[in-house]
Structure formats: structure tokens, C-alpha cells
């Protein structure tokens, strides 16, 4: 008699490979349908643009391949989409557009921010933002950089080549818990990235670090103008709910 391990191995192998002729288990096709429909329903909901773009037949083949070859680690249903993104990114899927992993990441980004959990320090809300503010990005905010113009991809426009300049986004959840997108340039992205990893510098100090590296490329921009710019950008994304104070307010 096979061991428990052998039984599970054979059952799951047969389950993952519907095309193999495997008569060993009764009603195996019921399990195959259940597993497929469950994952298909979830991912179709998470990736409607990809589903439309690929069409039903190619999509089904892709889901079958995901079930067959991807070892999903997460026990959490909201994270299956991320498993799918990893699956797309880690494999070369012949005849599928090269931008697919990035498009998948972009499609899921809104959900990712919508459900992201706040931590305690996210509650440190700045009253106002100026050169002396010690601020960073909230844990619910996300910075994204794509080598394809993923926001332009649709059923009618899927003939994209790699673009010369990457596309940058900041996503955050505003005070009404709605997800907000800001498309930005490389310089602004760098500012947000520095703020994200900021552990204790003032906005003036962060802006100065960045100014030193960008000044050679933008000789006409003065340090003062750039600081003013950094303050305005920070205020703008603070209104989108992206910013928190690094230090909690001291209660005296």
C-alpha cells in the first residue's frame, strides 16, 4: 500500500496535470475543475486587463500552467495574485508579451494599496510640511517603476516596446481610504525613494542630498528652488495620504 506521502504526491501530480491520462483516482476531474475555477476566478478578478488582452484561450492555458508548475507558498488568498506575478516574472512564457509581468504588477498595485495594513507609526500625521519636517512614506504607500508604459496598455493598444524613460508612480491611500495614483518623473521618484528610506533627516537635508546628485544634470536649478519644489511635492502627496512623521508627537 502506498504511504500517505506517496498518495498525496500522486494525487496532486494528477490534479496539476489534467492532460495526462490518469485513471488512478475517482472523480479527479471534479477536483481539477474546483482548483481551476477557484484560481481562475480569483485571478480574472485581479487582472482584468491581462485577461482581455490575452483572450480566454491563452488565459486558460496560462492558469493551467500556473497550477501545474508554480509552487505557491502563501496561505493567504489576497496574496495569490502576487504568486501569479512571481510566476509571470520567473518564467519565460513564449509568445506572451514581454511587458506582462510589469502589467500584472501595475494591475495589482491598486488592490495592494487598498488592502495594505497600517502600522502604528502611520498614525503620526504631520500638521504641516516645511523644510524642517522629519517625514517619510507611510507603510501603505508604494513606489513603482516600470520599463513599459503599463498605464497605456489596453485591448486596443498592446504593441508596446520598451520605452527610453521608465514610468514612475507613487500610490497611496487617502484619508477616505481611497487609492490615489501619482505619475511622476525620475527626479520626483528619487525624492520619494529617499523619503521612503529616511530614518531621521529633515526634508531640507533630504532635498540637499538629492540636489548634489542632480545638480550636474540640471545646472539651471538652484538649491533653493529645488528645496521649494521638494516641499511642494511632499505637500501634494501628503494630501494623498502618503506621508507620515518619522517621530511621534511628544506629549508634554
Amino acid at each position: 500500500m502506498p504511504t500517505l506521502h506517496e498518495t498525496q504526491k500522486a494525487f496532486c501530480q494528477a490534479l496539476r496535470n489534467p492532460s495526462d491520462d490518469n485513471p488512478a483516482f475517482d472523480h479527479l476531474s471534479i477536483y481539477q475543475h474546483l482548483v481551476f475555477n477557484n484560481i481562475d476566478g480569483l485571478l480574472t478578478g485581479n487582472f482584468p486587463v491581462i485577461y482581455q488582452l490575452l483572450g480566454d484561450h491563452v488565459w486558460r492555458t496560462l492558469i493551467e500552467s500556473f497550477i501545474q508548475s508554480h509552487q505557491a507558498k502563501t496561505p493567504y488568498f489576497s496574496q495569490i495574485a502576487k504568486e501569479f506575478i512571481r510566476f509571470l516574472a520567473s518564467n519565460t512564457h513564449q509568445q506572451l508579451p514581454a511587458f506582462l509581468p510589469e502589467l500584472a504588477d501595475y494591475e495589482y498595485a491598486e488592490s495592494e494599496v487598498f488592502i495594505a495594513t497600517e502600522n502604528e507609526s502611520d498614525k503620526n500625521q504631520p500638521v504641516q510640511i516645511d523644510a524642517n519636517s522629519f517625514i517619510t512614506l507611510k507603510s501603505t504607500a508604494r513606489l513603482k517603476k516600470y520599463n513599459y508604459a503599463v498605464q497605456l496598455i489596453s485591448e486596443d493598444n498592446h504593441d508596446l516596446n520598451k520605452i527610453s524613460e521608465p514610468t514612475y508612480f507613487l500610490l497611496s491611500r487617502d484619508h477616505q481610504q481611497n487609492v490615489r495614483f501619482l505619475q511622476c518623473n525620475a527626479l520626483t521618484y528619487s525624492l520619494f525613494e529617499l523619503l521612503r528610506i529616511n530614518e531621521g533627516s529633515s526634508l531640507a537635508e533630504v532635498s540637499e542630498i538629492l540636489f548634489e546628485s542632480v545638480h550636474p544634470h540640471l545646472p539651471n536649478l538652484s538649491q533653493n528652488e529645488w528645496l521649494h519644489n521638494a516641499i511642494e511635492l511632499s505637500q501634494q502627496v501628503h494630501a494623498m495620504g502618503a506621508i507620515r512623521n518619522i517621530f511621534p508627537k511628544v506629549v508634554s
Binding site: K9, F11, C12, L15, R16, I39, A72, F77
Partner: peptide, 16 residues
């Protein structure tokens, strides 16, 4: 079994 399948699969009814 070596990765999640996200559905309830049948155990054999054995002592093991």
C-alpha cells in the same frame, strides 16, 4: 503538496 492548491483535498482513510 509542494505548493498550495487552495482547495480541500481528500485524505485516505488509513491508520497512517
Amino acid at each position: 503538496h509542494q505548493g498550495h492548491l487552495y482547495d480541500l483535498l481528500p485524505l485516505p482513510f488509513t491508520d497512517e
